[in-house]
């Protein structure tokens, strides 16, 4: 297992380098550069600008610029945001907790919903309840997440007035109090529900099919013959076997959550990484954009790596190839 993990990890290195080259080239292709963020904006003396260009390395050959950037990136130096005039790292660190909170809540919702529906459907396949769940899943898969978000805001925020329609926290509450945390939870629930519902359908159907398949296996018959209650067979014996393959989905969810977060955060005006990314494109804040693109790519890579490794843990045959 260790050998397999190390091999996968080493296989990621060329991929990382390639991705970083692509990101860097894309950033260089964009109109303009991040010079204006680094220098004194009031000093328009061309000599000063030329001097700063030279000093900050904008005139270096392209491979040296790449090398400077990538070593800086690896050490956590992402440059300075042209929009906020503070290090990109600080901007990202400020927004990151919000996105993490949103992502984790969404994952939690996905798992809870999928487990409830999947276990019910798996226990009672081909009944009305199962068909209803399959129908709901079909619709959830088909509705694009941004349409679902718009409908959710319309229904739950405006018509029913259950949830706020934007932001991450009520501005009036004091930071650190119990009320503050409740307010944050209140704000995150609706976007997390929309984000979480995206992957619920595939989880549910997977769990259902796996439970049905497992319920026909010998160990279930043995357990029944010994007189184990059906409830215990389903909740302990079968579920334990069906959860394992689900774990591998976790890695792929990383990538899905990244894309989903950009859309959901923008619709719910939730101040997280996704919104920061959109704004950095719109305001041409290239250092932030570059750092985020690289960061999100690395996260996707890591997500796929985790999925691969978990797959190896679950299915020993994979490790051998």
């Amino acid at each position: 297992m260790l050998k397999y993990s190390i091999r996968r990890l080493l296989g990621m290195i060329p991929m990382l380098i390639l991705v970083s080259i692509v990101v860097f080239s894309l950033a260089k292709m964009m109109p303009g550069d991040s010079l204006s963020g680094e220098i004194d904006p009031l000093n328009t003396n061309p000599e000063y600008i030329a001097e700063m260009r030279e000093k900050l390395g904008y005139n270096d050959p392209i491979h040296i610029q790449y090398f400077d950037w990538i070593t800086g990136f690896a050490q956590g130096d992402f440059g300075k945001s042209t929009r906020f005039k503070i290090p990109v790292k600080d901007v990202i660190l400020e927004k990151l907790p919000n996105t993490l909170f949103l992502g984790l809540t969404a994952l939690f919702i996905t798992y809870v919903l999928a487990f409830m529906m999947g276990m019910y459907s798996g226990r009672k396949p081909y009944t009305i309840g199962d068909n209803a769940i399959a129908g709901i899943n079909y619709i959830m898969l088909a509705i694009p997440s941004f349409v679902a978000a718009v409908f959710a805001i319309y229904l739950f925020s405006f018509k029913l007035d259950w949830f706020p329609f934007g932001g991450s926290v009520d501005i009036l509450v004091e930071k650190g109090t119990m009320e503050y945390w409740f307010s944050r939870l209140h704000h995150v629930l609706l976007p997390a529900l929309v984000l979480g519902a995206m992957s619920t359908a595939s989880y549910t159907q997977f769990l259902r099919n796996d439970i049905i398949e497992n319920s026909r296996k010998d160990f279930v018959r043995t357990a029944r013959a010994k007189g184990t209650p059906m409830k215990k067979i389903y909740n302990v014996h079968i579920l334990r076997n069906s959860i394992i393959p689900l774990v591998t989905f976790l890695g792929f969810d990383f990538a899905a959550l990244i894309g989903g977060a950009i859309i959901t955060e923008s619709i719910f005006t939730y101040p997280g990484i996704g919104q920061l990314f959109l704004e950095s494109i719109l305001s041409r804040d290239y250092p932030t954009l570059m750092a985020l693109t690289m960061l999100l790519s690395v996260l996707t890579l890591v997500g796929n790596l985790i999925a691969d490794i978990l797959y190896g843990v679950v299915d020993p045959r994979i490790r051998l190839d």
Binding site: M15, V19, V22, L26, A255, I258, G259, I262, I263, F277, L292, T293, L296, S297, L299, T300, L301, N304
Partner: peptide, 8 residues
């Protein structure tokens, strides 16, 4: 496949 689609 490893590029985050929307971002790119």
């Amino acid at each position: 496949l490893n590029f985050p689609f929307l971002v790119f």
